[in-house]
Structures are given as structure tokens and as C-alpha cells.
Amino acid sequence: MLVDLIQNTLDGLTAGAAYALLAIGFTLIFGVLRRINLSYGPAIMLGCYAATWFHVQFQVGLLVLAALTLAATVLAGAYVERLCFAPHRDRSAIAAMVASFAIWMQLEELATLVLPNHLYAFPALYEGGPLSLGPFTLRAEALVMFAVTVLACLALQRLLYRSRFGLSVRAVIDQPVAARLVGINLPWVFVRVFAVASALGAVAGYLIVASAGQVTPMLGMWSTLKGMLAMMLGGLGSLPGAIVGGLALGLIEAHSQWFFGPQVRDLTAYFLLFALLALRPSGLWTTPRHG
């Protein structure tokens, strides 16, 4: 019983690490643009598909595969920004969201056009079985996932609080008009934010696909849903909140799967989200914000 509880917590935290990465990407885009990017997940899916295509054609190595996923996802993310957020910047938020939905469909069609089977194998990071730590088991992918997420968060923290680009991003989040008026090039900031967010998503996507050992077009919707859910759990627009929300979502899923069975897993998460939105609309983690 206790062993199971701890095992579930471990599993939940590692799944949550990936959710946290997705939520951070979502939050960055939402913070800067005040727009929901539904195509965030599909861009990641396309990145993974591009890598899979190379894998199918040329049998490339793991590192090359990771690099390809990253590059293709960043490109797809920038494409989404150019096509549906740049033209609607000063216009309706709904128009941008609908456009991002249209691009979602477009990216899915594109992926299934190039790789028409529903499912493709994706090479795992580590071929051996799960590692055992006393009574607990942990997959190598899960360990990597957790470590990479921690590193990515630290790198992002440094980027946002130390680099001039990061400070400009926070200036734009805080005071978009004033940021324009001190000569910050907003379109350029937006593209780079999309690139950073997509890179984080690509890391999450690659690790998820590698630990699942397969890639399907559903990855797009799955990433968008998990990322958005985790972002809303943590509180819209807060980066620490995104991390907390991601981990919380992972834990909730792992434990509810154990308690209620796998069919009810997602339902529990959605139910909790509704409860949270009703009782504490600002999310689990609220930082004082202004503007």
C-alpha cells in the first residue's frame, strides 16, 4: 500500500515534469501575447513527426533525432506565430485562437500526409528494462525527463531574469505599450518567445515520445490539452504556477489511476480543474501581479 503510494508519486512526478514543460511553454506565449495558442501541441507533434520521418528514412542516432525534433518544432512554432498571431496582434483574441485551431488541423493533415500510418515506432532512450530501487521501479526515461525538466527550468529562469532578451520579455508582459516606446522590437520578441516556448515543448515532446516508444497524430491534441490543463491548474500566466500545475496534474493522474482505474484517470483531472476554477479561479499558485 505505502509502496504503491510512493511508486505512484514517483510516476506522477515524472509525468508531471513533462506537463510542467508544456505548461511553461503555454504560459510564456500566454504571458507575452495574452493569447491561447491551440497549435502549441500540434507544432510539437509535427516536430516529432519530422524526426520520425528521418528515423524511418535514414535510421539516424538518438542525438540527431533529438536535435531534429528541436529544430523542426521551433520552425513549426515560428510558423504558427507568423501565420496566426502576427496578423492578429492588435485585433481580436478570438480570431487568433480560431486561426491557431485552423493551423492545428493543417499541421495534423501535413503530418498524416507524410507519414500516413496511424502509429510509428520511436526509438527509446534506453533499451534495458526499468531500473529498480529497492521495491520501486523507475524507467530511465523518467529519470532523464525529470533531470531535463529541472535543467530547463533553471536555464529559463536565468534567461528571463538575467539576459537582456529575458528582461525585454518581462518588460513586454508588464507594459506592452511602454515597451514599444522604449524601442523594444515587439514582433522580434514574439518570434523569439515562440521559439523558446517551442524548444521547451520539443524537449517535452521528444521525451514523451521516446518513453512511449511510439508517435501518433494524437500527440498534438494530447500536448495542447495537458499543457493547458496544467497551466490553468497553476494559475494563468505564472511560470512557477506552471511548474506547480504540471507536477500537480501528474500526481493527480497517477494517484487517481491507482484509486479509480485507468478509465477514470483523465476524468478526475478534468473534474478537479472544474472544481478549482469554481473555488479558486486564480489557480493553485498565485503570485502578486499587476497591470
Binding site: L167, R170, D174, V182, G183, I184, G291
Partner: peptide
């Protein structure tokens, strides 16, 4: 320009406010 209603980058330090403005 400056603003009638102050629009500083509140979450940035005084130094950083000037640094990001050097464009």
C-alpha cells in the same frame, strides 16, 4: 516619451529598466 500615468516595468529593477531601454 514619458507617460502621464507612469508605466514602468514594475518587476524589473531600476537598473534593468534602463538597460532594456537602450535600443
Amino acid at each position: 516619451r514619458t507617460f502621464q500615468n507612469i508605466r514602468l516595468f514594475g518587476q524589473l529593477t531600476v537598473w534593468q529598466n534602463l538597460w532594456v531601454a537602450q535600443n
